Amino acid sequence: MFKRIALFLATNLAVLGLFSIILAVLQANGYSIGQNGQLLLFAAIFGFGGSLISLLISKWMAKRSTGAHVITEPRNESEQWLVATVRRQAEAAGIKMPEVAVYDAPEINAFATGPSRNNSLVAVSTGLLRAMSRDEAEAVLAHEVSHVANGDMVTMALIQGVLNTFVIVLARVVGRVIDGYISGNREGGPGIGYYVIVFVLDMVFGLFASMIAMWFSRHREFRADAGGAKLAGRDKMVAALERLSQTYGESTLPKQVAAFGISGGVGHGLKRLLMSHPPLAERITALRNAPMQSVRGTVVS
């Protein structure tokens, strides 16, 4: 809980600090207070708009894109076990019962999504049900329930919104400055070069923003692993990750929900900076080396 509060405060202080710098640069380059406000409002609307809309429709999109079947009435013993296990874990984590679904895919995978901790979806692949033992599957479910309990979907949407806003504003501020020096016209409106510069800067700053977002994403995977260990047991969580490392292939999950799957983390060099998941070997090592008191205190309610 304290870590989440500290992250929230640090993020807001960073936003205020950056916006103060941006305002100063804009005023130094001929923008009025009114223009500053318009730019920041434009950036905030477009920066947060897409992230928040994606968050609000995340469950609907996940069901539609994966063809997941939501279990309303269990059709067999396997579905009964899935629902009962998620219900028990949700109660232990202090959240409302998520919807439970199964989607058809050969890979061993699962994901959680939804607009809030009390309005979520936990889904598993048919490949997971076929290939994993009940203990391993229980740990995977606990990992996904921990994502929900930790508020990871909302956190990632807010972080993405802040980063989108930074990219929009910084690209235009830097573009204005560069265009002014190149053209020598610091008083008049921007020329065609300004729009070319902004287009390039949007891509460059967007790449760096993606790296930051993926760093947060990798961090939350370690927390969800520890949360899964709390709910299901460390040995079960380690066994589940080891099974994933033995059978892992390229994920078939749609892009919209791939970052919330339990599988991932294959890449080197620059690609590693853009991974949503740490390598499974690192996750296993971190979980084995974590003090038990740290494991016990990971899931927040």
Results as ranks from 00 to 15, higher is better:
residue 263 S to Q: 12
residue 158 L to S: 01
residue 137 A to E: 09
residue 208 F to H: 03
residue 239 A to S: 15
residue 250 E to L: 11
residue 192 I to P: 00
residue 190 P to W: 10
residue 252 T to G: 08
residue 154 V to E: 09
residue 133 S to F: 04
residue 257 V to T: 03
residue 232 A to N: 11
residue 204 V to F: 08
residue 193 G to M: 14
residue 233 G to D: 03
residue 154 V to N: 03
residue 205 F to E: 10
residue 224 A to I: 09
residue 161 G to C: 01
residue 141 L to I: 13
residue 245 S to K: 13
residue 193 G to D: 09
residue 143 H to N: 11
residue 206 G to Y: 02
residue 143 H to T: 13
residue 163 L to K: 07
residue 216 F to S: 05
residue 129 L to W: 11
residue 241 L to I: 04
residue 243 R to H: 11
residue 211 M to Q: 07
residue 256 Q to V: 12
residue 215 W to Q: 07
residue 198 V to K: 07
residue 197 I to R: 04
residue 210 S to V: 06
residue 170 L to R: 05
residue 190 P to V: 11
residue 187 E to H: 12
residue 190 P to H: 15
residue 227 G to D: 08
residue 206 G to D: 06
residue 212 I to C: 04
residue 167 V to L: 12
residue 250 E to D: 09
residue 217 S to G: 08
residue 225 D to M: 03
residue 185 N to V: 04
residue 202 D to A: 05
residue 249 G to F: 00
residue 214 M to P: 00
residue 194 Y to M: 08
residue 167 V to K: 04
residue 266 V to L: 10
residue 173 V to C: 09
residue 262 I to T: 08
residue 150 N to I: 02
residue 203 M to F: 14
residue 177 V to T: 12
residue 146 S to V: 07
residue 153 M to S: 12
residue 211 M to N: 01
residue 238 V to S: 06
residue 268 H to N: 11
residue 129 L to Q: 13
residue 169 V to P: 09
residue 176 R to G: 09
residue 225 D to L: 06
residue 210 S to E: 10
residue 215 W to I: 01
residue 216 F to P: 00
residue 205 F to T: 01
residue 163 L to Q: 09
residue 249 G to M: 08
